[in-house]
Design a protein around this nucleic acid. Structure first.
Length: 854
RNA sequence: GGGUGAUUAGCUCAGUUGGCUAGAGCACCUCGUUUACACCGAGGGGGUCGGGGGUUCGAAUCCCUCAUCACCCACCA
């Protein structure tokens, strides 16, 4: 035998991958039709190793790709890596921290160069990890998110939006992380419930006629209050409107204004207005033309314009001091416990400060409209479907997008500001220059970079190159497969930008996978130490087993706990396949000539072809509908239950090399998308195979089978199963003989039945002796002695009880007139048949019981 | 405050438009040197599908309601 007993993935995987690459198998090429299929991978962040989620992503995508390649389509699978701006810079900063340094030790340019080198190593690392996972990627198309074509596309998008008035710059409240020193988009802020207090502060009226009390969770911002607001309908405060109060701790006079946004039921019904540090107050400040006073700096400290006592204090220190000062000066009316939502930096957990800043914004309204229309018209299929509606709802409520980031690592924003006229901004791509001269005026580059998602939004066509041959052929992409957690930050924006830049939807299908959780259902994270390294698992079980194990039981959109047992099961599957191949190669030899229409001679042959026919149909159907886990389960059972346990066992009695070889060939093809390495490895050992590579072989088509013959083997199966059951429960050896009366089939299948059921012989008799079988339709007996048979009576009793229950259930159903009238005829007939055979079986069982219990 | 998803065997999970006796892998029990495979073979046990109500001839599946968990969204100071 050519193959060793146990499949050792490590011995073959890298050679197989090299063989595919050398054969140019990953390059898109049509085989037999003109269809195309394209996927661009969601580029992993090039700042670490692949995690298990990447394994899942690549697995799912590669299954879809390999299946479609075998269908003969020109298949493009584009690899890539993400510079992941802020993400990567913060990873790098952590590394600097370990070295006792920080980003402030470097200029932006130096920092950029250092991160660049840091990322370069990881990028190479990824390539080898993608290969180990077996992903059939077109390496020529490899794209990094800082490649010139990606940057160029980002600039084109920016320019187009600038020209069409979608981009604007303005001083707005932005979500600012004072630790990382950068602003964020709304979607990036993480809200958490926090226990705090609601402080009631008394503001005395300037005219001395009394006071008004406001309630706030952020007393420190009172330094920047420029008004107190009440609801115009609030009778309690009607007489206060238009008056002024004297702001405690500050020597400023501020007005009491009326605004409908104030909720009369909350707190005291009077709100302090700090336009520079609260989104609501910001809006109110605009409406009422109030001054904007900045109290908190970008470093998270009280600014130098504030009273000396508070200058330079951290926010929380300032809060403490202000509360105690207010108390001391009798301005604090009360302090009550209060739990509310507070925004945090999703990376470092620092409380996000709403701060005023000049930033670039995109007016989203013109972009969301076509996207919503496209979604509503059903142009894009979603798996799971529910995510489509969620996305529509999200888009309907979307606000403008802040795309400026105050970090070094990213794509510079191609905008320059006139040194003499701050309002004068121009678009220019010479971002390597700090200043440029245009028309005799000097302009300075905006030091900010784009939000990474801004450039990623064009990923589906920027990778192909807008207008290129690849673009014409492969755009829109067939599928966008990515994590359900980035539906909003990524999928939504790709959709909007795709429609905006290309006039077309960027992908026809969206497949979203859930998170891979740890074995107890908790999120995996480095800090919890429950992260699983996919490469370790590939080492341990093989790449195929890793892939099959991770996708097993995974359904679209749902999170799933990691279960190592599934990898074990998948590894065993690969080994089973390996041994099936060993057996078949040994049986039929190297000089065998493969025929693609195998000749079925026996019922078993027809049964096997029938199973293959059915499986090809079902597995293709699952794959067409993105039900990967179900498809792989079907392959598993086709190989293990049908082919190995029944057909191969049967073939030991009656060898048909044609069907054996055809069965193996078909199963290798069906299994290939799920287990590419082991299937290709086996394929390469098959001397009789005429297609040189499995990866580019044709997906199987359904063979013809004689269903009547196939049904005969089903009969044999149930006969054999019954005999095995009796033998096992009676603990019999292999010396019994099976007698039958006038069953032609049993004569024909004599040796097969004897072998499968492990009986000594199958003999035709005039009248039987021993235990009469009850499940099979044939008239047969197992020759067991009276004593053993009697002990089987109890077992018969159990079966009789079961049959009686089944019969009464079926009779109940049939006696229900509404059932007979309303249920489809097919079902009613089926119920009648079932009742009939249940009655027959009960009769046999009772006869046997009567015979043995005398 | 609103929304979405989950709840099925000891564990991890499937179950497509309502229709055979609710499935899988692993775990468990019994037996087994059988022409490839102990990463194996044969047989078996185990679930009132989270609770309650409803629609229907028929519900894990549709509707209502409650509970628990998870996630998302929202400017209530």
């Amino acid at each position: 035998m050519n193959l060793p007993k146990v499949y050792e993935p490590k011995e073959y995987e890298s050679d197989i991958y090299a063989l595919w690459e050398k054969s140019d198998a990953f390059t898109p090429k049509n085989r037999g039709n003109n269809d195309t299929f394209s996927i661009v991978i969601p580029p992993p962040n090039a700042n670490g190793n692949l995690h298990i989620g990447h394994g899942l992503t690549l697995g799912i995508e590669d299954i879809a790709i390999r299946y479609n390649r075998m269908l003969g389509k020109a298949t493009l699978f584009v690899p890539g890596a993400d510079h992941a701006g802020f993400e990567t810079q913060s990873v790098y900063e952590k590394q600097l921290e370990k070295e006792g340094k920080s980003r402030f030790d470097f200029s932006r340019e130096e920092l950029y160069d250092r991160v660049y080198d840091f990322v370069a190593e990881n990028k190479d690392n990824y390539e080898s990890q993608f290969r180990r996972l077996g992903a059939s990627l077109s390496w020529k198309h490899y794209t990094y998110t800082l490649d010139p074509k990606i940057v160029a596309q980002a600039y084109n998008s920016f320019k187009k939006m600038w020209d069409e008035g979608l981009i604007y710059r303005g001083e707005r409240l932005v979500n600012f992380c004072t630790f990382h020193g950068t602003g964020f988009a709304d979607i990036e802020v993480e809200y958490k419930e926090e226990a705090s207090h609601l402080w009631h502060i008394t503001y005395p009226l300037t005219d001395g006629s009394g006071s008004i009390t406001v309630a706030t969770t952020r007393p420190e911002t009172m330094l920047g209050d420029t008004a107190v607001a009440v609801n115009p309908t609030d009778e309690r405060y009607a007489s206060f409107i238009g008056k002024t109060v004297k702001l405690p701790l500050m020597k400023r006079e501020i007005p009491i204004i009326a605004d409908e946004f104030v909720d009369t039921a909350f707190g005291t019904g009077a709100v302090k207005i700090t336009p520079a540090h609260d989104p609501n107050d910001y809006e109110a400040g605009k409406r009422h033309d109030l001054p904007f006073i900045t109290v908190i700096s970008h470093e998270g400290k009280i600014t130098h314009d504030m009273p000396e006592d508070y200058r330079g204090l951290e926010v929380l220190e300032a809060r403490k001091k202000i509360v105690s000062d207010l108390k001391e000066q009798k301005f604090l009316e009360k302090e009550e416990d209060y739990t509310h939502n507070v925004g945090h930096c999703y990376k470092c957990g620092t409380v996000i400060q709403p701060l005023l800043r000049d930033q670039w914004f995109i007016d989203m309204q013109p972009l969301t409209k076509p996207a919503i229309e496209a979604l509503k018209s059903g142009k894009i299929v979603f798996h799971p479907e529910v995510k489509k509606q969620q996305l529509i709802t999200y888009l309907e409520n979307l606000r403008d997008w802040n795309i400026s980031r105050q970090i070094a690592w990213g794509i510079p924003i191609p905008a320059f500001q006139n040194l003499d006229d701050p309002e004068d901004w121009i678009f220019d791509e010479r971002v390597q220059e700090e200043t440029i001269t245009v028309d005799g005026k000097t302009y300075r580059r905006d030091p900010d970079v784009f939000d990474t998602w801004f450039s990623s939004s064009s990923w589906p066509y920027a990778t192909l190159g807008l207008g290129s041959d690849d673009y014409k052929k492969f755009y829109p992409l067939s599928v966008m497969e990515t994590g359900a957690d980035i539906l909003y930050p990524w999928v939504s924006r790709m959709l909007m930008f795709g429609l905006y830049n290309t006039g077309e939807i960027p992908f026809k299908t969206v497949y979203l996978h859930g998170l891979v959780l740890d074995q107890h259902g908790a999120k995996m994270s480095k800090s919890k130490g429950n992260v699983i390294n996919p490469m370790e698992k590939v080492d341990q079980y093989g790449s195929d087993a890793f892939r099959m194990g991770v996708i097993a039981g995974q359904s679209a959109g749902n999170n799933q706990s990691y279960d190592e047992n599934r990898l074990v099961a998948a590894r065993n599957f690969c080994n089973k396949l390996w041994n099936v191949a060993r057996f078949i190669e040994d049986k039929i030899g190297d000089d065998f000539e493969l025929r693609h229409n195998p000749k079925a001679e026996t019922p078993a042959d027809n049964w096997m072809l029938h199973k293959l026919q059915q499986s090809i149909r079902e597995i293709s159907d699952c794959l067409d509908n993105y039900r990967f886990a179900e498809a792989s389960e079907k392959v598993y059972h086709l190989l293990w239950d049908d082919f190995a346990d029944w057909y191969i066992e049967a073939s030991k009695s009656n060898l048909n090399p044609g069907v054996l070889a055809y069965g193996l060939e078909t199963i290798l093809k069906l299994a290939h998308p799920f287990a590419p390495f082991v299937t290709e490895t086996i394929w390469q050992t098959l001397k009789w195979e005429d297609e040189s590579l499995l990866i580019t072989a044709q997906w199987p088509t359904e063979p013809k089978a004689n269903d009547k013959e196939a049904a005969i083997f089903e009969e044999v199966k149930s006969l054999v199963t019954e005999i095995r059951y009796i033998k096992a429960s009676m603990k019999l050896g292999h010396t019994n003989v099976l007698y039958h009366r006038g069953a032609q089939l049993l004569n024909e299948q004599r040796q097969l039945i004897a072998n499968l059921a492990r009986v000594k012989d199958v003999v035709e008799v005039e009248d039987g002796d021993g235990l009469h079988l009850t499940t099979t339709a044939f008239d047969c007996w197992l020759d067991i002695d009276a004593a053993t048979a009697e002990s089987f009576v109890r077992e018969l009793g159990n079966q009789i009880e079961q049959q009686q229950k089944a019969i009464s259930q079926l009779e109940g159903r049939l006696s229900n007139e509404s059932y007979v009238k309303n249920a489809p005829n097919r079902l009613v007939d089926e119920t009648r048949d079932q009742l009939e055979s249940a009655k027959q079986q009960l009769q046999k069982l009772s006869d046997e019981q009567a015979r043995f219990s005398k």
